[in-house]
Write a protein that binds this DNA or RNA. Structure first.
Lengths: 321, 321
DNA sequence: TCTCTCCCCTGAAGCGCTTCAGGATTGCTA
DNA sequence: TAGCAATCCTGAAGCGCTTCAGGGGAGAGA
C-alpha cells in the first residue's frame, strides 16, 4: 500500500487490483482520510474551485431573485464534480472587481470564472483573457467576446404577459423596465414591442428607471393613464403598484400590472409574474465551465421556457366611463 | 534573489535588506507574479479560505435581507486579510449539510467555518469539534456549545416599534413571528412582551407561522381585531398587510403593522421596520474567526443598536366608532 | 591585524500528493 | 523448461512554495 497505490485507488485509475483498491478505500473510510486538497492542487495544477465575483451592492442583491437561485444551481453542478465555489463580493462597479479577478487568477486560486452582469465593452474580458483563465459567461455578451456563454430564454417571457393582457381585453400595453444600458433590459423591451404587435394591441409608453428612481418614474408612467403595464422585474412592478395606489387607483381594477422573475416578492404581493428558471441557468453555466475545464461532460442546456404565473394583479380593463 | 529571499520579501518577514526587498517586489509587480496559493497552502498548512455552508432553500434565501448583507460584511473582513470565502449551498436541513462540512474539513479546503442558522442541539457542533476545525457561530447558540459566537442586538429592536405604536395611541399590540423553534424568533417574542409591559399597553395575541402558513396565520391573527401588530420579519408584515387589505382593512388607517430587517421589501412596501446592521455582523463574525485563526486582531465588536425606520404602515389607531 | 558578532542571503529539506519508469510476480506460449 | 507479456505494485522525482541551518561579508572591538 504505497502512496502511489493509494493515489491510483482514490482517483479510480487503473494500476491496482480490485481487491487492493477496495482495501485501500476501506482503510481510508475507516480513518476518515481524504486526500489533501492543497497537495492535490499543487501537483495537479488545479484547485477544483471556480470563482464568482459579484460587483453589486448588497441592497441590490437581496431583493434580486436571480442571484440566490443562480447560486443554488451552481451548487448543484459543482457538488456533482466535487468542485467548490469561491465567492467574492466587491463594491458595485465592474472596475472595482478587476483587482479581485486579477488576484484570484494570478494566485491560481480558481480554475475558472463564471461571469454575470455582463456589460457593454466589459473590461473584465481583456484582463481575464490576458490571464489565460477559462471563463464562461452567464448571459449574452454585447459585441466581441473571447469566451463562451450560455443564456436563458428570459426574453421570451415578455410575450406571455402581453398576450394575457390582450386576452383580458386591454387595448394598450405599456412597458416599465430597469436601466436601459443593461442588455437584458433592452432585449425585454424589444420583445415587449414584438409581443404588442403580435397581439394586435397599441404600444403604450416605455419608461426606464434605475433602482433609486423607480417611484418617480412610476408616477411619470401613470400620467399616461395606462390600463396595463408589463414590468421588467417584480421590484419595478411593486413600485408601480404602490404609486398607483397612492394615486387612488385600484390594482387590478383600474390598472393591471405584471412583474418579472416570479420572486418571493411576487408571491407576497399577489403579482402576476414570469418565472424564469435561474437555478437551471446556474447549473448550466457552471456545467459548461466544468466542461471547458475538462472535468465534466458538456451539458446540453435546453433552457426551459419562461412561465407566466397568474395572480391577482391582472384583470380586464375598467369599463369606459 | 533566491527563492527563500523572495519568500521573505513577499511575506514581509525580516531577513532581507530593504533594497533587496524592494527589488524583489518590483520584479514581482513587473512580471505580474504572485505566490501560488496552492503551494502556499501546502507548506503553510492553511488555505487562506473559510467556509460557509448554507442549508436553506433558495426560495427562503432570496427574500431574506440577512443573507446577502451578512455575506457582504464577510467579504469586507476577508479581503482585508486576503482570505477567500468558500460558499456551499445545500438543500434545506442541517443534516444534509453535515457531509458538506465533513468533506471540506477532511480535505483541508478551509481553515475554519462560519456557522449560521444555529439550531437547538445542532448536529454540526459534534462533527466540527471532532474534525478539529476552528468554528465561529454567527448567532447565539442554544445550550452547550464548544465554539465562540458573536451576536447582534437584534432583540432590542422589538422595543422601538412597540414604543412607537404606544406613542401613537395604540393600547394593545400583537405579535406575529416566524417558526417558534428558531432562537431569534423566541427572543424577539420575549422582547415584545417586555416592551409591551414597559410601554404600559395591553399584550395582544402572539401568532407564529412558517413560511408556507403565513397567509392563513395572518387571517387568524386578524380575527382578534388588532389595531397594531409588530412582526418578526418584513415578509410576515407584508403577508399580514395583504391579508388585512383582503379583509377590507386599511393599513395604516385601521391597522398599524411593523416589519423587521428593513429589507428592500420594507422600502418597497412602505413598511415601518427595524434596521439591523447585518453587514457589520458578518464583518464581526468573519473577523472573529480570522482572529481565532491567528490571522487578524480580534475585532472589538460593538454591535450597533437596531434602528426604527418609520414609513407609512403605522398611524394612530382608528377612532372608536 | 585578528576575532567576534551581526546581518543578508542561499542551499536544501520537506509539505502530501501525482506520475512515471521500472521491479516483482504471475500466467501463458513455444 | 525457457521466454515473453501482462498485471500489479513501488521508488523516486517533482509540483512551488516556506523554513531552517548555516555560509559569507562587513563592521566593531581588542
Amino acid at each position: 500500500m504505497s502512496a502511489a497505490a493509494v493515489s491510483f485507488a482514490v482517483n479510480d485509475r487503473p494500476g491496482v487490483s480490485p481487491e487492493t483498491r477496495e482495501r485501500i478505500l476501506a482503510a481510508a473510510r475507516e480513518l476518515g482520510w481524504r486526500p489533501s486538497a492543497s497537495a492535490r492542487a499543487l501537483t495537479e495544477a488545479r484547485t477544483r474551485a471556480i470563482g464568482l465575483v459579484l460587483a453589486r451592492d448588497a441592497a441590490q442583491l437581496d431583493v434580486d431573485a436571480f442571484f440566490v437561485r443562480f447560486l443554488s444551481g451552481i451548487g448543484r453542478a459543482l457538488s456533482a464534480a466535487d468542485y467548490a465555489l469561491l465567492l467574492q463580493l466587491v463594491p458595485e462597479g465592474a472596475a472595482a472587481a478587476l483587482p479581485a479577478y486579477e488576484r484570484l487568477a494570478a494566485a491560481g486560486r480558481v480554475d475558472g470564472f463564471l461571469l454575470t452582469d455582463v456589460e457593454v465593452d466589459d473590461p473584465r474580458f481583456a484582463v481575464l483573457e490576458a490571464a489565460g483563465v477559462p471563463v464562461l459567461l452567464a448571459g449574452r455578451p454585447v459585441g466581441e467576446c473571447p469566451f463562451a456563454w450560455v443564456e436563458t430564454r428570459h426574453e421570451e417571457g415578455m410575450a406571455g404577459p402581453v398576450a394575457h393582457l390582450a386576452r383580458l381585453g386591454h387595448t394598450r400595453v405599456c412597458f416599465f423596465g430597469g436601466r436601459a444600458d443593461f442588455e437584458h433590459v433592452q432585449v425585454r423591451r424589444e420583445r415587449w414591442r414584438n409581443a404588442v404587435d403580435d397581439a394586435g394591441v397599441e404600444e403604450g409608453v416605455a419608461v426606464h428607471a434605475a433602482d433609486d428612481e423607480m417611484a418617480e418614474a412610476a408616477r411619470v408612467l401613470l400620467t399616461s393613464e395606462p390600463t396595463a403595464v408589463v414590468c421588467g422585474s417584480d421590484v419595478l412592478a411593486v413600485a408601480l403598484v404602490r404609486a398607483a395606489r397612492e394615486r387612488g387607483l385600484d390594482v387590478p381594477g383600474d390598472l393591471s400590472v405584471t412583474g418579472f422573475d416570479d420572486s418571493p416578492l411576487a408571491a407576497l404581493s399577489g403579482l402576476t409574474s414570469v418565472r424564469v428558471d435561474y437555478a437551471e441557468f446556474g447549473e448550466a453555466a457552471a456545467g459548461a465551465l466544468l466542461a471547458e475545464l475538462g472535468v465534466a461532460e458538456a451539458p446540453a442546456f435546453e433552457p426551459s421556457a419562461p412561465e407566466l404565473v397568474l395572480r391577482a394583479s391582472t384583470a380586464p380593463p375598467p369599463s369606459r366611463g
